[in-house]
Nucleic acid binder design. Structure first.
Length: 109
DNA sequence: AATTTGACATATA
DNA sequence: CTATATGCCAAAT
């Protein structure tokens, strides 16, 4: 694994309940500002193995754009359970629920 | 090894 | 707001 993937996993695991992060943010913090898609891959591929809270990862608009409707529905339900605020549009309130994370490099791994 | 593929982002019109 | 285009990089095939 490259550092990016490792960091991405750590970051995702560190997202607290009631908070969400965007793909772009995770990628950026993990070291690749344009690696949003890798975050997607990491999630989908590693979620089963690493027990990642994939449901706390959404796109930059706060909208759930997941291909699987069941997954999207579950995600929304879980987020609501955790206290994430949803707007009337069905979007997550990023202003309130986005988890801004600053990495100190050595703290990870 | 080479090519395709993604739970996407950002820019531009 | 929608639509189209382009970039991006690791995992999967």
């Amino acid at each position: 694994m490259n550092p990016f993937t490792e960091k991405a996993i750590q970051i995702i695991k560190s997202i607290p309940q009631g908070k969400v992060m965007t793909y772009g943010q995770i990628a950026k913090v993990a070291g690749s500002p344009r690696g949003a898609r890798q975050v997607v891959r990491v999630l989908h591929s590693m979620s089963a193995n690493y027990n990642l809270p994939w449901h706390r990862v959404i796109n930059a608009k706060g909208e759930i754009v997941i291909a699987d409707e069941e997954s999207a529905y579950s995600q929304k339900a879980m987020l609501k359970e955790e206290g994430v605020k949803f707007l009337a549009n069905g979007r997550v309130d990023l202003k309130e629920s986005r988890y801004d994370l600053n990495v100190a490099e050595e703290d990870w791994i």
